[in-house]
Each structure stands twice: as C-alpha cells, then as structure tokens.
C-alpha cells in the first residue's frame, strides 16, 4: 500500500481519537520556518527574535513571577468584564426581544452606542475614572454587552411561537414560561453572543492595557516596545493567542456545541 496513504491513515485515526493533536501538529512547520528564518538572520535579530529566545524569555519572566502576575491581572479583568457584561446584556436582550415597545424605544440607541465602539471611550473614561481597574472594566463590559444583547434578542425571537403557547396551555405561569421556555430557547444564541463578545472584549482589554498601562499582558508588550525588546512582545502575543485559543476551543465552543447542536437549534455560519 502507498506509504503516504498509510501515514495519512495513521494521522486521521490519531486526530479522531485526540482532537488536540490536530490542533497542534499544524504549528510544527510554522515554528520550524520561524526558527529557520530567525537563525538565517533574514531580519535583524532585534526585530525578529527566534523561538529559542522567546522560550528563554518565557522561562525568565515566569521565574521572576512577572508573567503569572500579569496573566492573572488580564484574565481577572476579562472575567469581571464578562460577568458584568452578561448580567446587563442578557436581561436587556430578553426585554428587547420580548417587547416590541422596548425594541422601538431602545434599538436605535443600542445601535448608535455599539457603533461608537469600546476603544473610543477610553479618553473620556480616563478623565472620569483615571488610570485604573474601573476604566478597564468599563471598556470590557461595554464590548461584551452589545454582542450579547444582539444575540439574545435573536435567540428570544427564534423561539417558535408555539412553544410558549404550549407551556401556557400546560398551565405554566408567565414567569415560568420565561425560565422554562424562552431562556433555554435563547441559550444557544446567548452563548454565541458571549463568544463573540469575549472575542471583542479580549482585544479591547489589550488596547486598554496598552493605553492605560499599569499591568497585564498588553502592558507587558507595550512596555517591551518602549524598551525595544522584540522578544517580550512576541512572547506576549503568543501567550495571548494560546490563552484565547484554549478558552475558545476548550470552553466556549464545547458549551456552544452542547446546547445548540445537541438540540438541533443552531443557525450558525
């Protein structure tokens, strides 16, 4: 039998058993090329550090305790922001999704504030709250809220009209219809909204940390930029990417699958 085919067969079986392998293997050639380009010094070392230097930087910063502390700061801010964002976004989305009056009164305002965008708020927030946690949390909450609201509204509206009717005719009081029918029906979309919102929130956090600049991975990168140290910038980027990748692929995506796809409700692109 064709050895290439055989190899592909092994690869396919392995990745079927451990999907993590499929997510990691493609990075091997990328790192190899990176290493090659860096060691041939195609670009100046100061601008384009190699993998070995970045690993050394990682060990160094971890040993000093800077990296874990900054990571904790960033993740903490993101979680805090996401929590507040959901606490505001989900009830608002349900209200707007259920009531035509609420929709008419608030939808244009929601669209307008969404358009301003989180980062444009930074200057005035700095005036209001100064350089601190409040400013950063505000920015992240602001980013997370809109996708959550949009998708919750979509979710509430996508619940087939006969489902709440069925619940009512089975004797459910109105608030139970909300918790037993509307909320679960909208859940897949809410999760999608959270996933999108965190994607934006993550970027907003980095920007806020760069501009507000007290601690966190974004600050680490920008501080390194000021010192002209490319190694730490690249390290910061990889940490950010890996962390988000892990959160998205191993936490958010499975939740999305477990709700939407399992119930056959998903209308995702």
């Amino acid at each position: 039998m064709n050895p290439a085919l055989q190899a592909w067969g092994y690869y396919a079986r392995w990745t079927a058993r451990w999907p993590g392998v499929a997510a990691l293997v493609p990075f091997i050639p990328v790192v190899a090329i990176w290493w090659l380009v860096a060691s041939l010094e195609v670009f100046p070392r100061a601008f384009f550090p190699g993998p070995a230097e970045v690993v050394r930087g990682f060990v160094d910063l971890t040993y000093k305790g800077i990296l874990p502390a900054y990571l904790e700061d960033s993740v903490g801010r993101l979680l805090l922001g996401a929590g507040f964002g959901m606490a505001i976004g989900i009830p608002l989305g349900i209200l707007v999704g259920l009531s035509q009056t609420a929709y008419r009164a608030t939808w244009p305002i929601i669209l307008f504030f969404q358009a301003i965008g989180d980062i444009a708020w930074l200057p005035i927030l700095l005036i209001w709250f100064g350089f601190g946690l409040t400013t950063m949390t505000f920015v992240i909450v602001y980013t997370v809220v809109f996708p959550v609201v949009f998708n919750t509204v979509l979710g509430v509206r996508s619940v087939p009209r006969d489902l709440p009717r069925a619940a009512l005719s089975l004797g459910a009081p109105r608030w139970r219809v909300l918790t037993e029918v509307i909320l679960p029906g909208a859940l897949p979309n809410i999760v999608t909204g959270l996933r999108n919102g965190l994607g934006y929130g993550w970027r907003a956090l980095i920007a806020a940390e760069i501009i507000v600049g007290t601690s966190g991975i974004g600050f680490l990168m920008f501080d390194a930029r000021r010192a002209g140290s490319a190694t730490e910038i690249v390290l910061g980027m990889i940490v950010l990417g890996l962390l988000w990748y892990a959160v998205d692929a191993w936490i958010l995506a499975p939740i999305e699958r477990a709700t939407g796809q399992r119930w056959g409700l998903v209308t995702r692109t």
Binding site: P26, F27, V30, R203, R225, G236, M237, L240, W244, Y245
Partner: peptide, 24 residues
Amino acid sequence: TFLTPLFRFFSVLAGIAWIPIATL
C-alpha cells in the same frame, strides 16, 4: 482541515495585539 487551527489561532490575535510589534 490541516490549516484551519493555524488560521484560527492567528485570527484570534489579529488586530490590536500587533500594535507593539508593528510600531517596532
């Protein structure tokens, strides 16, 4: 299917996270 994780990783990073290295 081989390249999807790669581009997913990079599209997660895309944009703001490149500001420091871009200015360098």
